[in-house]
């Protein structure tokens, strides 16, 4: 029997992998991919909660809010990936590098 806990543990594991990658990877593309992982970890949680919440009179399959949110996040993540890749390209053109440590314009 697969319970909610299984989904949550899976989500946490994926999120942690994503977080580690986002913080530790030097290649910006890898960082971006890890951020996607974190998004999807959250998506799993949302869908799982939506599935396991009790049904009510108006919603025989339980509230759909979580699933709607997941769709939202997928859409936003796609847009974000497009923008991010464009920025990465632009940075690569000026700096000939996609290494995060080389991009430190914000340093005081």
């Amino acid at each position: 029997m697969i319970t909610l806990q299984h989904f949550l543990v899976l989500s946490a594991v994926i999120f942690s992998i994503g977080l580690y990658g986002a913080l530790a990877k030097r290649n910006v593309v890898a960082v971006l991919m890890c951020i996607e992982l974190m998004f999807n970890a959250v998506n799993i949680t949302l869908v799982a909660f939506a599935r396991y919440l009790p049904a009510t009179a108006g919603n025989p399959y339980g509230p759909l809010t979580g699933q709607v949110f997941a769709l939202f996040i997928i859409a936003v993540a796609a847009a974000e990936a497009a923008v991010a890749l464009a920025i990465i390209l632009a940075v690569y053109r000026t700096r000939r590098s996609v290494n995060v440590e080389d991009v430190n314009l914000l340093q005081s």
């Binding site: 977080l19 913080l23 960082v31 995060v100 991009v103 314009l105 914000l106 340093q107 005081s108």
Partner: peptide, 17 residues
Amino acid sequence: VTRTATGQLPNYALAVF
């Protein structure tokens, strides 16, 4: 405080987390 502004994105992300 400016010492914390390293310009390294991972540092900022870690701080946010």
